[in-house]
Amino acid sequence: MNSLSRSLGVAAIVATGFAFAAPAFAAGAGEKPPRQTWSFYGPFGTYDKAQLQRGFKVYRENCASCHGLSKLSFRNLSEPGGPGFTDGQVRTLAAEYKVKDGPNEAGDMFERPARPSDRFPKPFANDELAKAANNGAVPPDFSVIAKARSYERGFPTYLFDIVTQYQQQGPDYITALLTGYEAPPKGVKVEDGLHWNKYFPGNKIAMSNPLLAMFDDAGKASDPNYYTDGTPVTKLQVAKDVTAFLMWAAEPKMEERKRTGVKVMLWLIVLAGLLFMLKKRIWSRLDAEPSKAH
């Protein structure tokens, strides 16, 4: 390889760098979310089952009444790489939900208890109803929300992200948002029906603090035994748990993907090594007797 190769290589890297500068979220104000530690970080990162189960509890009790999970089925909760509920638990849980079915022989739609194969029912029958019930804003569905939210990393940080594997903009943002409710700065007027959040782009968010009921003003948990597994109930912990659950909901095959990826990578390295040696072998003939190649 000559100097051209090197310069082209550098150019390619720089090119990739600039090209990916696309900021992924609104340009409006909103503090950069602090970085959290996640069990699913990196090529070998996996979900923490206990955390996903806690997160599901938080989702169910604090978010589910407005935010659907429409792409998920109850059965997903017991599938490998997820929260690891048992089939029995999932059946019981599903039966607590009512889903619409039918029509029956009389031509009527009816409600029945959900089965594991059913998808999570939507909290609102349609967007108009959701809007009417929520001050004109439709609460977004949570199926892929952890992948649908991001924030700008800036040049050249996002270049390093390729190597460092940082891709948790979504989870970091969601956790920040859940812990970012505070009193507005002096002199800033927040209109009725809006709330101040230091991480929300534009700062004024329609959603009221969803964890409000769980903590008092001093940040003390109203129910210290909210978690049955002994995990301390803090605002950050609760936010992180529900975020981890949402990340799993958005990317339920992540563990399978990474496992496969490790195997593929190892195999490619072996193959590349073999081909490199073979290539050297074959091309060395030219050094021996250049004109005999044909």
Binding site: A24, F25, P43, K147, S150, V262, V264
Partner: peptide, 11 residues
């Protein structure tokens, strides 16, 4: 396998 949404766009 390890960074599938890097080249895409969250929106």
């Amino acid at each position: 396998f390890f960074h599938p949404n890097f080249l895409g766009h969250a929106d």
